[in-house]
Design a protein around this nucleic acid. Sequence first.
DNA 1: TCTGGTCAAGGTGGT
DNA 2: ACCACCTTGACCAGA
Length: 301
Amino acid sequence: MNRVRLGYACINLSLGSSGRTSRTSRLSNATPQHLEELSRANLVGLSEVLRWSVSHKIMVFRISSGIIPLASHPKAQWAWKQRLRREISSVGNFARKHGMRLSMHPGQYTVLNSPREDVVAAAAAELSYHAIFLDAMGLSSEHKIVLHVGGVYDDREASLRRFRENFENLPANIQRRLVLENDERNYGVYDVLNLCDSLGIPMVFDYLHHRAYASCGLNSAVMERVFQTWSGHDGRPELHYSTQKLGARTGAHADMIDADDFLHFISLLPRRAVDVMLEAKAKDKALLKLRLDLRGRYGLW
DNA sequence: TCTGGTCAAGGTGGT
DNA sequence: ACCACCTTGACCAGA
């Protein structure tokens, strides 16, 4: 068994159009029929991507939040869970059969700690869609929904308190999947660690965000704490890793992964099985290249 | 068939 | 007060 498994996010660049999973629609022409067609096509694409991944021994993948377009939008509601039950379940069966580790990651508009009630309600609806989708795939609580803490609103303590309160009000099927990730501006690794400890949920450590956040360096003690937030029913700790794009804004993802830098990072981790989600622009191609660069040198792959 | 403007959505920081 | 940026396509109207 590999101690370090690599994954990639949302898009497969090796498959052509057959691997598309995020066809979407403008709200203006989002009829239930149209959304259903798009969703079905996306699910076929997802099935292709998972098959491709398994055949390339890639067992970790992030499903695009766009798999069911506009799923949580109040003006575009339809019975996607009922109408696509068989298709979603079938894709899930394939993933389970092959022991894949899947996750999802709602975008920057999902803000659970907003002072605005309507924003919190929309965030809860979006998280609910993610949880229902993973539930419908028949996946255990090891398959996570990754979220950022949200805004600061000139008052960190109040904003963190609001996050805790709103988290406690979420239904259990969301709570059991929710994990929090450090961001590059608002909430750094210690903020998120403390919050995760108080909520009893895991933390996803993002390497590039941590570097962008500045202030503190990286050491084994921090990573030990991060790993401790993951208990048995959460599965392996999940980490996000990407290389800084040279000459671009701090935090911008490079196309590929720097293998030496990656190995240095891995050397700081506790000796425990881990899943590393690569957030490189070249997606699966960056993963294959990294694996090639590392092969034989360290016996990881 | 190609291209450029636009798209559900929030928060932050610069002007 | 307003706008660009974040992630990032993908859609769509018009050429």
